[in-house]
Nucleic acid binder design. Structure first.
Length: 683
DNA sequence: ATAGGGTTAG
């Protein structure tokens, strides 16, 4: 009896001042005391439920809630909140509907939770009926409810165009919910989706009071739906209403300037962020990293990242993606390792960000390690990750593994289809099978990238006429770039007649295509049709088209060395020249005969030999050989395709110097080892 | 005696 009365006093004190409870532990202790004070009233039970729901303790809340016969408003509110905050959105809504069926009227501060649940469940119809409920109860003047409505219409705009999401048929005024899934979005709903932003604006206009959150919500809503100018207009309007942009505003605005590739405006925002102490904010920092990366300012991305004192998974992911997108693959991999060391768990997107780096560097062992990590982390059923794995294995030359993962996948996206078709170098039959089964058995309409991949494949396999007809029969309009792949194939396989036909197609769809003119001029030269070659060049000059100089670069001891064809300006040029001569002698002993047909200069054979001899990739290669220890793998990048002769030469060089040489040109990588190349001469 | 609680970004 005495202990009961002590408990009663204690409980009474706490229920009078529920905020004095500071920890979950204290809250749990209170429950033990409370249970001794039988009988307890519904109102004190409700207060206790609200205490638990504030700590997000779902189970004690439910335990108490279920003990009530007719729960008062506070109990309903608390339980709806607790369900929503712990991710049980459907339960939260079910509770709301039940409460209505008990004839209890909701109060304003419950709507933000319920509307949030509708957004998470992607249920626009229910959201709309709740909006109706808000209006009927005359609660649409509440600031928080208004903000939640703004958010809902903003989110539904960005959800709708995709269509096909699950909609729960669900009526607030029916009593219990029906969870029939209506798959797909009707035409009527799609039509309605176009006006969601208008609805958002209408809600905003009706709001008697707006705060920073209201503005941030509509700005983000417009920005995320591609309405960039409208978003920026609203930022100005917000300023006119005497409200200052905060970190939320900036992180919605920065992606717009990233999209516009407007580094000037982006930097202005950066300056504003620094002046207002927002630059250490994780959200701002990752938007800045993305923005700078999109503007090809990777150094600025890095400095933002380096100055960040607290980094979360998204800041790490942003900087890794920034490096990989800008071709700084080694740095991307280094950061990925640092991320793991810092015990930050990678997200699914992290893997699809980092995998292209493995694919590019053709570091199969690292790709395999990542694959292991993916399996251990349970990410292997993620379509994006699986696609990037297919691509990585295909690019690293392990077609077997690529195909195995591809076959394991339940659904295939564009990336995996492209990767698998591109990956089967030379296996045209197989690629045809995949290409055909794509539309026939999987209902995926081939896109431009698949046509391009197929055309490229056929061309590289020397099936030029087949490729020509294939491109001509495309369902989508052909582009200059797709014909260009075939034109390069014509050059490799020395089919001038077809090349002229292909070039004419390019002139039709893409008259500004520099590559086509250059290639044709080169092919005429190779066929010793000097007049035609000159005609081509005069034509280019007239049109003001200039050839992009061939350029290769190599990283040695953290410095990038760039070489242009025939360039003698490198400080070590003399030694490079000696090395080149030495290499030439060695590969000639292996049977190398210079293939000067590809050179378009009208000079004698001996001179031609030297022009080819100083192609940019060879300068870079010779420099790499003399400035790195024996056996080191050499990685070279080139802005345009490697020529046939250099390809042959580098194969032999890889044999005589016993090194792996990786050359990445603008269309693919070449992995040279022991006199062979991974492309198996299909390029 | 009575209130409070909730909304936005990468």
């Amino acid at each position: 009896m005495t202990s009961n009365s002590t408990a009663k006093t204690l409980v009474k004190t706490f229920l009078r001042t529920p905020h004095s409870l500071k920890t979950k532990f204290q809250a749990k202790q209170l429950l033990a005391q409370f249970l001794q004070t039988q009988p307890y009233s519904p109102s004190s039970t409700s207060i206790l439920i609200s205490v638990y729901s504030n700590f997000n303790l779902l189970h004690p809340s439910l335990f108490l809630f279920n003990s009530l016969n007719s729960p008062p408003l506070l109990a309903w509110k608390s339980i709806i909140k607790c369900y929503a905050n712990s991710g049980h959105f459907l339960n939260s809504l079910t509770c709301f509907v039940q409460m209505r069926s008990f004839g209890i009227y909701p109060d304003p501060n419950m709507f933000p939770f319920v509307l949030k649940a509708c957004v998470f469940l992607k249920n626009l119809r229910l959201g709309e009926s709740i909006h109706g409920c808000v209006i009927r109860l005359g609660l649409d003047f509440d600031l928080f409810t208004g903000n939640a409505l703004l958010n809902m219409y903003a989110k539904f705009q960005s959800l709708q165009p995709n269509g096909g999401h699950k909609v729960f048929a669900f009526n607030v005024f029916d009593g219990m919910p029906k969870c029939d899934e209506l798959c797909g979005t009707s035409a009527q709903e799609k039509g309605a989706s176009i006006i969601q932003l208008d609805r958002m604006t209408k809600v905003l206009e009706m709001m008697p009071k707006r705060d920073v959150v209201s503005w941030n919500t509509v700005i983000a809503g417009n920005a995320q739906n591609g309405m960039y100018e409208e978003a920026l207009r609203m930022v100005r309007e917000m300023g006119n209403a005497n409200m200052k942009p905060d970190s939320f505003t900036l992180s919605s605005v920065l992606p717009i300037f990233a999209e516009y590739v407007d580094v000037i405006k982006g930097k202005e925002i950066h300056g504003y962020a620094i002046r207002h102490w927002f630059d250490s904010d994780c959200y701002i920092a990752s938007s800045l990293i993305d923005m700078y990366a999109n503007c090809a300012r990777i150094e600025d991305s890095c400095s933002v990242f380096n100055l960040l004192s607290k980094r979360d998974d998204i800041s790490w992911n942003s900087i890794i993606a920034a490096c990989v997108q800008n071709g700084v693959f080694d740095e991307g991999l280094k950061l990925f390792r640092q991320m793991l060391t810092a015990e930050v768990k990678p997200r699914d997107v992290t893997f699809s960000s980092i995998m292209p780096a493995c694919a590019y560097l053709t570091t199969l062992h690292l790709g395999k390690q990542l694959h292991g990590y993916i399996i251990r982390g349970g990410f292997n059923d993620n379509m994006f990750i699986a696609s990037s794995l297919v691509d990585m294995y295909a690019k690293c030359g392990n077609i077997k593994a690529a195909r195995w993962i591809f076959n394991q996948m339940e659904h295939h996206d564009m990336v995996s289809w492209t990767a698998i078709i591109m990956g089967h170098a030379g296996l045209t039959e197989e690629a045809w099978r995949y290409f055909n089964s794509m539309s026939r058995n999987h209902g995926i309409k081939p896109g431009l990238e698949h046509y391009a991949a197929m055309a490229d494949l056929l061309g590289r396999a020397g099936k030029l006429e087949e490729a020509y007809e294939f491109i001509g029969s495309m369902h989508t309009a052909s582009t200059g770039s797709i014909w260009s792949t075939l034109l390069s194939a014509c050059r490799v396989h020395k089919n001038l007649e077809l090349a002229e036909k292909v070039a004419n197609e390019i002139y039709k769809v893409d008259p500004e295509n520099v590559g086509a003119y250059v290639l044709m001029s080169n092919m005429y030269a190779a066929a010793r049709r000097w007049k035609d070659a000159a005609k081509m060049r005069i034509f280019m000059k007239k049109k003001g088209i200039r050839k992009e100089p061939a350029c290769s670069w190599i990283e040695v001891k953290n410095r990038v060395h760039t070489f242009i064809s025939g360039d003698k300006s490198h400080p070590l040029y003399d030694r490079i020249f000696e090395a080149l001569k030495d290499l030439l002698e060695q590969i000639e002993r292996e049977g190398y005969i210079p293939d000067t047909n590809e050179d378009f200069h009208d000079v004698d054979e001996e001179q031609k030999k030297y022009i080819i001899f100083s192609h940019s990739e060879r300068l870079a290669l010779a420099f790499g050989i003399i400035s790195t220890p024996a056996g080191t793998t050499i990685r070279i990048a080139k802005n345009i395709r490697v020529c046939v002769d250099c390809h042959t030469a580098i194969k032999l060089i890889s044999k005589v110097v016993q090194r792996e040489i990786i050359v990445r040109d603008n269309s693919r990588f070449h992995h040279f080892k022991d006199g062979k190349c991974s492309c198996r001469d299909y390029w």
